[in-house]
Simulated assay, not measured.
Amino acid sequence: MDEYDDDFPSLDEDGKLDLRHGMWSSLDDRVWEWHARIVVLDMSNNNFAVLPREVGRLKVLRELDISNNKMEFLPVELATCARLRVLHAGGNGLRSLPAELQQLTLLEELVAPDNAITTLPTGIVKLPRLTVLDLARNDLRRLPPELADSPSLEDIDVSGNERLETVPAPMRMNAELIRWACGRDRERARGEADLRAANEELELLCRAYDTERLALREEAARLRAENRELSAQMPRRYMRLQAACASCCAVM
């Protein structure tokens, strides 16, 4: 616990626990005693380095704000907060998002700008109620092609991802254009996959042809060797036959 534990805020009557700007680095044990009552948990602008795995016990949690802390990862237990609708996690040091977040089928907002996220799990963009996706100023390289099939997403921001290849920079704050770019990337990927498959089939045919040609060469070499052997034996057989005939004539 922190030295400020005596001043730890209480849960209000609406189920909100407001810990903003408190210089907290750990949660008081009382939080877990309120696990069946916390609807909104605001931990933003503190010194938290870890989101405790016990967060998965908050079964009625609808909004979680952990923005501007020092977290490098999110626990997979967060995915068990089945009623979560809003997740704000910007301004941390997150390197990835757990694929398990795809279990949050009620999630409407995922806001995580100013992190170091390199990939976006495919399952997240398939969430049926997700309308806001903000991953601005991260380190994304590509976006899932499935994003093209996410019409529920009304607000997408992937600006400031300098190494993002999928979407041109001028289009990175326009949901419709981002979906179009992801669809184009998917078609390109399919074309590349078809080309690889055709090349692999051609290589197999070439290897089969080479194997058959080698077998024919070996068979031809064997036949030539037999022919040479037969040719070499023919004079000796002829001389023996001639000598035998001569002997027969002498006897007669």
Rank of each mutant, 00 (worst) to 15 (best):
L94I: 10
A36P: 02
G15I: 01
L107I: 06
L97F: 11
D12M: 08
H21R: 10
V31F: 02
Q103H: 10
K59A: 13
A99W: 04
R95G: 15
L74M: 14
L106E: 14
P98M: 10
Q102E: 15
G91L: 12
S67L: 03
F73S: 14
P75D: 05
L17D: 00
M23S: 12
L101A: 05
H21G: 02
G93T: 08
D14A: 05
G93W: 12
S26H: 05
L97H: 01
I66Q: 06
L78P: 00
N68D: 15
L101T: 05
D12N: 15
R30C: 06
P52D: 08
P98H: 11
V76N: 14
N47F: 06
L19C: 01
S96A: 15
L58N: 04
L64R: 07
L11N: 00
L19E: 00
V76E: 15
V50E: 02
G93A: 14
V55W: 06
D65T: 13
K16C: 06
R95D: 07
L84M: 11
P98K: 10
H21T: 04
M23P: 02
D14H: 04
R62H: 07
E33I: 13
N68L: 13
N45Q: 09
L19P: 00
W34K: 04
L27C: 08
S67I: 03
A99M: 04
R20E: 00
E13T: 13
N47K: 09
M23E: 11
G91I: 12
N45R: 09
T105P: 01
